[in-house]
Design a protein around this nucleic acid. Structure first.
Length: 286
DNA sequence: ATCCAGGACAAGT
DNA sequence: ACTTGTCATGGA
């Protein structure tokens, strides 16, 4: 039984579909719970165990530990974003508009770069439900217990994971991804890769840096930049997006990454990563 | 059972 | 430059 969430913050904000956002394949640790005759989600933001839900036109956030000025929450949920300006930059084609209509209030979160990198290394050739399972196992086995709650664990730091063996990770059913995750944790723990330095780099340069890691190709790198660094000028192409581009946008062979990347940059513009989240969500659920 | 999953990588055309 | 086979594992 968890202790009460003592601290509460209410952020008035329109056009925010929290449930859709938390279940759109960008974050993997939020759990839906019943709360006050409604739905809420519980999960960790950094080392804070958090509950979040919507009432009227407000985002309600509750924290077990001392919240300070709640800047960490505003940042994670990106409540200061000029959402309408982003949407206004999208193209006016039929499938884009259909996606916008069907996924109203879908947002991108600002997640921790390391957790995002680790999560998307694990995501390769995996269904979202199993990505969640792998991450849950990693947190339960190697994460540190969070303040003020029992049985809740943070995502383990690179330093912690770098001390583990490949077989320890394979025991968590990571499969061939185990050595990839281990290599990434060791690159960061040793200082050979400094994630913070990617913030000030161009997306192209940051992408090249991430792709130095084994198990990090163009798609994983783009997801990390989009979800963990707020770089919207990248366009992750997974199996669903590939289908959308071919079936909805008439991309013809050769279906090479370069061919599709060029189209995405031309057609979806500077915020193509944000647009991509709508295309992905609608493409895989319709 | 068989195929596929928010892919990456090496090997083969 | 582009395509194919392989890699663990679980869900549909």
């Amino acid at each position: 039984m968890t202790k009460p969430f003592f601290h509460k913050c209410e952020i008035p904000i329109a056009s925010y579909n929290l449930g859709l956002t938390l279940n759109s394949g960008q974050a993997f640790r939020w759990e839906e719970v019943l709360y006050e005759d409604g739905i809420a989600w519980e999960g960790a933001i950094g080392s804070r165990w958090t509950r979040v839900y919507q009432r009227d036109v407000s985002l309600c956030i509750e924290s077990v530990c001392h919240p300070g000025n709640w800047g960490w929450a505003r940042d994670y949920f990106h409540t200061k974003l000029d959402y309408n300006s982003i949407l206004a930059s999208f193209p006016n084609d039929a499938f884009m508009q259909e996606s916008l209509d069907s996924c109203q209030g879908l947002r991108l979160l600002n997640q921790d770069p390391w957790e995002t990198l680790a999560s998307f290394i694990l995501s390769s050739n995996k269904q979202i439900s199993h990505i969640r399972q792998m991450i849950k196992a990693i947190c339960f086995n190697f994460g540190t217990q969070l303040e003020g709650v029992g049985g809740r664990y943070g995502f383990p730091s690179p330093e912690i994971l770098s001390e583990k063996s490949e077989s320890q990770l394979r025991n968590l059913k990571l499969g061939y991804r185990a050595p990839y995750l281990l290599a990434a944790s060791r690159a960061i723990a040793s200082g050979s890769l400094n994630l913070s330095s990617l913030y000030s780099m161009t997306s192209s340069d940051a992408r090249d840096q991430l792709m130095q890691l084994p198990g990090v190709g163009p798609k994983v790198a783009d997801c990390v930049l989009l979800f963990g660094f707020g770089k919207y000028d990248v366009f992750p192409i997974d199996t669903w997006i590939k289908r959308v581009l071919i079936e909805q946008y008439g991309i013809s062979a050769p279906h090479s990454m370069k061919n599709m990347q060029v189209f995405a940059e031309q057609h979806f513009g500077v915020n193509r990563g944000y647009a991509q989240q709508f295309l992905f969500q609608w493409g895989r659920t319709k």
